[in-house]
Amino acid sequence: MGIRLLINLVRFVVTYVIATVAVFLFMRAIPGDPAQIALGVNATPELLAKTRAEFGTDRPLLVQYFDWALGLPFGDFGTSYITRQDISPLIIDRVQVSLILVILAMIVALAIAIPFGTYAAVKHRNPSGIVVSGISQIGVAIPNFLAGILLVVVFAVGLGWLPANGWTPPGEDFADFASRVILPVLALASVQGAILTRYVRSAVMEVMSEDYLRTARSKGLGKLESLIKHGLRNASIPVLTVTSVQLAALIIGAVVIERVFVIPGLGSMLLDAVGNRDLLTVQSVVMVLVAITLIINLMVDVLYTVLDPRIRKGA
């Protein structure tokens, strides 16, 4: 297990470093000059030169890269040209919002997917199981921003039950937080739940065809009982893999959902920063997203070994 962890850590660092280079170069390759955007129309060449010097974007690329990248391990992302503020505290503010959104959405998605997926697998020949499976198929096809817009139209604008958008931190006013978080979480979770339902269904169906389940049932256990006692743990490995991949997808989905619901998370910060060509902020937000994804993968790998002793021993 130790070696496995070490290999994973090395992979983590190498991936991270490659990502920093890629993000940095990409932001330099796309057209648009931060100084020009800051000064807007009518900017004179002299003012532009002055602003570029102030932003540091007139320095050689290597200097700019190391100036930024060497601060990353210490959580020092530099100062944004555009907002004139340190980027780290801004990211910490925003990342909390996005994580709340993503984690709640994943919990709700799993709460939908595990029971319904199992049901659809057990009843895969019954009409009721086919209906569940069909509904999930529709859910997979809906992009989450569309789900978000539909939810707003029905529950906020139409029925007036919930606010259409906005955000209140849970520590400030929990009731208001709750009323504002329901729709975006549902928008993310409904689509995720549908996707995961299909994976849970196929994982459970595969387990159900295994010999040991037939043995368990021949010993007199019921279909559901044998599944819960012997099957779910085995089915959980592929589901966990998909969940981790989907968690990363959910973070990306949150970028769009934050826009629809006007939530000040990492996603809105990223989109604003791209629009303003706030290079340092874009680079730093992307690296935080990369780090979160890599950490999820690392954690999932540890969880595999907990769930499946064969993996633990195999390494």
Binding site: L104, A111, D173, A175, D176, A178, S179, I182
Partner: peptide
Amino acid sequence: AVVMAGSLALTACSAGSGGGSADG
């Protein structure tokens, strides 16, 4: 524990949904 916390949060959501919105 995680599931409990999650469901608690959800109950709180439905409890709070009436306030704070339309008459903010």
